[in-house]
Write a protein that binds this DNA or RNA. Structure first.
Lengths: 210, 210, 210, 210
DNA sequence: TATGAATGAGAGTTCATTCAT
DNA sequence: AATGAATGAACTCTCATTCAT
């Protein structure tokens, strides 16, 4: 009969008193799958609270606003994604192989949800300065990662690259653009096609003189 | 008019009776700048009605839903943008020059609002099937435009291109990706830099053998 | 694309200019099935106009208000129903048989829609004085019909009835009440059961002494 | 509070925080007189909220929809009415007297508002399955009450009744039908007349052989 | 620290009525 | 007589935020 069915099941243990930082983290973490599935615009405090197994009040107690929760959750997810990419590259023997592994890791069947969230995050920045700043920062880290590989590759003699920064811009832009197309075109670009386009760029720009 | 939105000034001339198709167009047209400035998520029927100088009822009389108004407005704006690009390319002597003019037209100081709306439209498609379909269609038209130029350039002997479709995918993706970066990075990518990256792709892929 | 698809198909011939009384009748007549199917509360001017094959303006030109259309339509339907009952009774040899035929005609598989509209009409009278007056008038006619049969039956020596008016009240009330139950109870009262209850009343009150 | 509904006076004491079940009850209770006076179709959330001395949000917080509020309010009222009838019957020495007291209690000058709400509730069931189900259930309870009295009366030797279920159907139907007439006819059936008709049924069917 | 009832502005939509054509 | 575009008040429902407990 009640309008909102009380769901207390989730994470009953965490209903106990927690230090702020722990609680914040638990809440943000709980929001990640919600955003990934519905998009940030469709996630409300109530949803987050329910998913985290806490009350609405607890969410607003620990966060200034919903925006803050969403932002934190998205950053959490995105950083984790880039960490995986880095790990993938680090596992390689040389920078050239590293860039190749990273390229492969960018488009897999599991990455669509990442790209969706990434563009969702991008979009949020359109009206929210804080999101935009986070976005810029994330772009910077990501570019740094790529550029480092390119430069190491050049040092190791595998790549020929007069302007690593410019290449990085193109590489990152191409990846973003391919993802956009993949998520909207029909029939969609396959993951393999997307990778091939990136590899084509690498060949054309870094390996031609090698 | 409602107490909340007191202005009625705009488009006073159109207060008169209009055939449905005319009124629909006037309303959609009035919605364009609103969406461009605030993003589609922040535009409501009341805003549109006020901007069009009509009552709320008039908007809902001519449209099924707000979504329909927004979609129509965005399509209006986007198609106009692509028409300008086409015109720009058509003005050229040959296909090679056409592609160069088109590249220049993609990034100017006036195009940021286009890109913003383009990505807004893209994002709307994330939760609305109708938007997504429109998006796919627009991608197709846009790709067709580019590919035609590439093929004509090859026929005219200016371009060397074994796979025009693949190049088109990369060109369009790079343009999208550069726009994403331009709107978020700080300091932002300049229009000239963005163009240069696209020209670099053209050189590397189409003109290398010429 | 248009919000409201223009349906001009229906009764194209009647789209021509018509004298007021003719047009009123055509419109009211068109409203009958709508009310029967959806209930008067769910029928709007637009529906009526569409069903009558005329414009909204035409409906409001000929009627003071929607209420008036609905009322007229309901009266049309209800009077037609009672006319059929009268005809049924008139067809009989004597009053006794007439009352029996009328009883049978009250509950058939086709009469549910009548009862539904009757109670809809009754309900409308709860907030609208005009409806209530129409209702009272209809009750009076209906009672008159029954009473006349009873009195004739008494004169013909078939019935024994010291107070025809009181019997009429009970007979009419029982019919109404049985219909109410039939439309709500589950399992619903069958038409045959409903008739039997009415016949039982007739036996108990009119035929016991005969 | 909203500009449109300035009064906030009622139930000032209940402005305080209440557990859901309590608040739900307070709100439903506040809706009863509104429905009784205007009919359920004319009662909106704003009215209910104002009457309950809470905000609109509070109503929608505790209820799924207005329908739910109205339904709960009507059930509240109707059950209370039947409880009073039962109490009336229970107070009697024997079942025969119980049925007589119940008959008297059905029509008093205070019961018109009940009947109005009962038919309003009935009508609501015409388009809403949930209402219809509630209605069916209420019919069942009410019939059970009557039948029990009849059977007890028979056991006590006061009534002669070969088919208590059938009598119950007729008794309940007659009561409903008399109420319908009473609320519409002019001049209206007096309460005493209505009772007399019911007593006549009892005499004719239950006491004739006694 | 945690709760969840309470809030109220604002959203999209409906629709009887008006009136220029 | 007929049209249908235009109106705007009123509707229900959503939801981030507040705050007494």
């Amino acid at each position: 009969m009640t309008a909102r069915t009380p769901r207390r099941a989730v994470a009953a243990a965490s209903r106990t008193r927690q230090p702020t930082e722990v609680r914040r983290r638990l809440i943000a973490e709980a929001a990640v799958p919600l955003i990934a599935e519905r998009g940030s615009a469709a996630v409300g405090v109530r949803d987050v609270a329910a998913a985290a197994g806490v009350s609405v009040g607890t969410v607003t107690y620990h966060f200034e606003s919903v925006q803050e929760v969403l932002s934190e959750a998205m950053v959490l997810h995105i950083e984790r994604y880039y960490a995986a990419l880095s790990a993938s590259a680090a596992r390689a023997g040389g920078a050239a192989e590293g860039l190749r592994l990273l390229t492969d890791a960018l488009f897999t069947d599991d990455t669509d949800r990442h790209w969706r969230m990434w563009f969702d995050y991008w979009h949020a920045g359109d009206r929210d300065e804080a999101f935009a700043r986070g976005q810029a920062e994330r772009y910077e880290n990501w570019h740094g990662e790529i550029r480092a590989l390119v430069e190491r590759g050049r040092d190791e003699g595998d790549f020929h690259c007069p302007d690593p920064a410019a290449f990085t811009t193109r590489f990152a832009a191409l990846a973003d653009g391919l993802a956009l197309q993949r998520l909207r075109q029909s029939p969609p670009l396959t993951t393999e096609e997307a990778r091939r386009h990136l590899r084509r760029l690498i060949e054309a720009e870094l390996e031609q003189g090698a």
